[in-house]
Write a protein that binds this DNA or RNA. Structure first.
Lengths: 193, 193
DNA sequence: GTCTATATCCAGATAGAC
DNA sequence: GTCTATCTGGATATAGAC
């Protein structure tokens, strides 16, 4: 049925519009203060109409959460891995810090528990796990092997981003340490081999 | 006036009781869900009575925030600094991760923006700055000099704690990397001298 | 698919009696 | 200093008309 297909596309487009509006408002007034009323108003609707597109506020947040991890996945996929390891890790770290700076609410939704009564559903969580596994495999191929090394790495990149956002959200203070972290880490790997 | 003094003490004791109750409830039901009604009930009062002891919910959170940084300050003051640098940094990192694990709401209040409409007042913020400066001075005395090195250090410890709380709140998975981080960092300092 | 109207609930804060 | 009663505002979600 062609008409059904058209309607499905239209529906998907509206869902996108709603999510875009939600991100926009979250950036303006804080993720924790995001309300369905405001999101609806932002797309020219009233709150109850949103329930045509999402089962609940939680399922809308689920969609945003999964979207964030798909974006991170794409970002990491674009990091060049043909140079030496330190160069690749530097690029990955810089990309990650910029990714976090680009949208504070996205960062909060993906990496902190900033929304009061919500946590990602199992379905949404799977997307984040897939993203993590892709990163793990790419790093392993580049020479970062073992859970312990990977944990050390994620802690350092998470720390850079956290400090950058908390203390210098629009600046470079921790971003510029990306290369130091990468070199330090590569030296650490060499020493423990 | 003796009576006034007694009343001031009593008042201070009640303030303590209220803060203890707030921490307890925050641990049970989440910092973001903390309400004055519940805190009041926990100490056997009704919500309006709390306004005798705190101007607003925000000022209660301010007191909790400042309390957290005073506790962190004491913790760091107790870290032995007579051994070699790597040993001291390992101890400091382990202490910090345990400090964060000991109270998730305290961690959220101090280091994230987990409460919707609140941020620390200027007075409360000063306490956190003082704590930071003490840590900075202690590290400088031990051989960690310069803003860049300090920023690198805070990022790594913040990252360990963040990953530990997010992915293994009651475990050791990132805690056990404290020594690796310390040694890695000391090597980095030596190389850049 | 969108609306109005409403149910239900909970929050912080204040007025004023005792 | 503590209470009851209330103000004010906001949230998610549902019922049912159009």
């Amino acid at each position: 049925m062609v008409t059904t297909d058209v309607r499905a596309r239209r529906r998907e487009a509206t869902r996108r519009e709603i999510l875009d509006a939600a991100w926009r408002l979250a950036a303006e007034q804080g993720l924790a203060n995001l309300s369905l009323r405001d999101v609806a108003a932002e797309v020219g609707m009233r709150a109850p109409s949103l329930y045509t597109y999402f089962d609940s506020k939680g399922s809308m947040l689920d969609a945003m959460f999964a979207q964030g991890y798909r974006e991170l996945d794409e970002l990491y996929a674009g990091v060049r891995s043909d140079g030496d390891l330190a160069a690749m890790l530097t690029a990955a770290t810089e990309a990650f810090v910029r990714f976090c700076q680009a949208s504070v609410p996205r960062y909060q939704l993906m990496f902190t528990r900033a929304v009061a009564g919500w946590e990602p559903s199992a379905r949404a969580y799977e997307v984040s796990v897939a993203s993590y596994e892709h990163m793990r495999d790419r790093l392993a191929a580049a020479g970062v092997q073992g859970q312990r090394a990977l944990d050390l790495w994620t802690a350092m990149t998470a720390g850079l981003a956290a400090q950058q956002l908390a203390n210098d959200p629009d600046g470079d203070r921790w971003f510029v340490l990306s290369r130091d972290v990468a070199v330090m880490f590569v030296d650490h790997l060499r020493r423990n081999r």
